[in-house]
């Protein structure tokens, strides 16, 4: 059996301390393999954003284990987590989060800048990534000159330009209309199928979650339902 890409064991996250402590995650066990496409669903306050932040190494768990490839993420310091994000993770946000007044190509080049690639190779890789998301003719446009769907494509290009192990998408279609949402989901599905890109996506729309191969429902900081284990209670 191939080794898992991501392994969560008894993962907890508590904010605050003492009486004011709030548990956002109360013990998550999850195993993901390379090439998986996971949709995380749940009501607001269910802990899905917290889970996403921890998976994205933006936040650290309060307890439990987070194994990424062979790394125990909970033992990493801030800089080490930044480097892990730089080299292995790609992010797509609900609000696109592109740099304003900066061309699409320069936005896509940004992660490569931190990898220290020379300008010519950055440019080449950025144009290839834009081509992959179907925006090669918009490379010189700034976010203000692009539609929401196009902006999200630029954001996806930026996330995949480093060839990450995992793409983390936080409500990628939250700010888009239905037609554009479906186009984005199709793009993500294509990247998952054709390039074997592992995708973890948070969404609250069943319609969008349907594109994923596996759906995880969270409730009150615990896994409520997992489509990979149809009846968790009958297991074992």
């Amino acid at each position: 059996m191939r080794p898992p890409l991501i392994q969560l064991q008894g993962l907890t996250r508590t904010y605050g301390r003492g009486d004011a402590a709030v548990s956002a995650l109360r013990g998550i066990d999850l195993t993901l393999f390379s090439g998986d496409f996971l949709a995380v669903m749940g009501a607001s306050g269910s802990g899905k954003s917290t889970l996403m932040n921890i998976l994205g190494c933006l936040d650290t768990p309060s307890g439990g284990h987070y194994g990424f490839e062979s790394i125990a993420v909970e033992t990493l310091n801030q800089t080490q987590r930044a480097l892990l994000r730089r080299h292995r993770l790609g992010f797509v946000f609900q609000g696109f989060n592109l740099l304003a007044r900066t061309s699409a190509r320069e936005n896509v080049e940004l992660p490569l800048l931190y990898r220290g690639l020379p300008a010519a190779r950055r440019r080449q890789a950025a144009l290839a990534a834009l081509d992959l998301v179907g925006l090669s003719d918009r490379a010189g446009h700034t976010p203000a000159e692009l539609s929401g769907g196009q902006q999200q494509r630029v954001a996806i290009a930026r996330a995949i330009v480093t060839d990450p192990a995992v793409l983390l998408a936080d409500e990628p279609t939250g700010n888009l209309d239905t037609a554009r949402s479906h186009a984005i989901m199709e793009l993500l599905t294509r990247l998952n199928r054709e390039r074997g890109l592992t995708i973890i996506m948070v969404t609250h729309e069943e319609e969008m979650a349907a594109y994923a191969g596996r759906t995880l429902h969270l409730r009150d900081g615990l896994i409520d339902r997992d489509s990979a284990e149809p009846d968790a209670t009958s297991c074992c």
């Binding site: 800089t79 930044a82 480097l83 994000r85 790609g90 992660p111 996330a159």
Partner: peptide
């Protein structure tokens, strides 16, 4: 925030 998320160190 964006820069930090895509892997810039502090």
């Amino acid at each position: 925030g964006i820069r930090l998320a895509i892997g810039a160190t502090g």
